[in-house]
Write a protein that binds this DNA or RNA. Structure first.
Lengths: 153, 153
DNA sequence: CATGAAAAGAACGCAAC
DNA sequence: GTTGCGTTCTTTTCATG
C-alpha cells in the first residue's frame, strides 16, 4: 500500500506507544478523530499492523539470557530449509529466526533462563532437528538497544 | 520480582495481544477483573512491561530490507563501548544492538529501504562513528520467525 | 476531510465481604 | 482474592456539512 506523510507519522506513533488515545494523536497531527480512526482500522484490516503487544524489559526479570546462534544445515535444498522453518516456529526459546545470505545459514535469537537451560536447549532441542550440521553460539553481554520499530522513510 | 503462575500466564497473554480486554483475561485465568487489573498496573509501575506497541508486518510495506552487521571497535575500553552505545541509540536504522561475548563485537540489526540505502547507512553513518574498525554485513533472505515474546518458564 | 452527537465498551476507583 | 457499583475515558458508529 502507498503510505502518505500522515500514514508514516501515524505508524511511527503507534509503533512507539499503541495506547496513545486517538484524540491525542489527532491533535498532534492537526487532524480530527475520524480520519485517524479510519486509517488505523485500515492498517489493521490490511495487516500492516499485525498485532498489538506488551513489551517486557528483560533486565527486570530474574534470569533472562539472550543468545544468538548461527545454524548450518547439511542441505540447502528448499524442502530442508522449509522443514527447518516449521520446526523452529514451535520452539518458544527461539524468538527470532532468519535465513541469511552468504553461507545460507540461519541466525537464531534465543532467550533462555540461564546457561544450563541454554545447554539443554542447544544440545537437546536444536541439535535434534533434522539436517542440522553445525551450531555456533554467541552470548549477549549487554542489550544496548532493542526496539520493535520499523523505520519508515 | 517474583512471578507466580498467574503472573506468567498473564504476561504471556499481554505479550501476545495487549488489547485483550481485562474481563476476557480474567475469565481465561478463572479470576475476576480486580486482581488482573492490579497485577497489570504493578507490571507497568515496576517497568516489567516497559511499553505497548503496534507491530508492523514488514512484508506488507513496499521495500524493507533487514541486515545484520557485526561491528568491531578499535578499543574495548569501557568509555569506547559506552560512547558507541549512545551513538547507536540515535540512529533509527539500527533497530537492535547487542554487545556480544567472544570477540566483544557489537551485533546490529538494521532496517533500511533497499541496498542503496544500506550502503549510505553503512559507509556514511555507521563507519563514521568513532572507534569503528570493521563492519561485516550479512543480509536477511527470509524472515522465518519474528516475535517480541520473552518466554517465561 | 471537519464537526458533533450518541451509544457501547473498557478502564478505573471505591466499598464491602 | 470476590462482588458490585459508579465514574471516566476511549472506542465506535452515524449523520451533517
Amino acid at each position: 500500500m502507498k503510505l502518505d506523510d500522515t500514514d508514516k507519522k501515524l505508524l511511527a506513533i503507534l509503533q512507539e506507544d499503541s495506547k496513545t488515545p486517538i484524540k491525542d494523536i489527532a491533535s498532534r497531527l492537526n487532524l480530527t478523530k475520524t480520519p485517524i480512526y479510519e486509517r488505523i482500522k485500515r492498517y489493521e484490516q490490511e495487516g500492516i499492523i499485525s498485532k498489538y503487544v506488551g513489551v517486557l524489559d528483560p533486565s527486570k526479570l530474574d534470569t533472562v539470557m539472550v543468545v544468538f546462534c548461527s545454524v548450518s544445515l547439511e542441505s540447502q535444498k528448499l524442502d530442508a530449509l522449509e522443514s527447518f522453518d516449521k520446526a523452529v516456529a514451535d520452539i518458544p526459546e527461539v524468538v527470532e529466526c532468519y535465513l541469511m545470505g552468504g553461507a545460507n545459514d540461519f541466525l537464531l535469537k534465543v532467550v533462555v533462563k540461564d546457561l544450563q537451560a541454554y545447554h539443554t536447549f542447544s544440545s537437546g532441542k536444536l541439535a535434534a532437528l533434522p539436517n542440522v550440521s553445525q551450531i555456533k553460539s554467541t552470548f549477549v553481554l549487554n542489550e544496548v538497544k532493542r526496539s520493535t520499530v520499523i523505520p519508515i522513510f
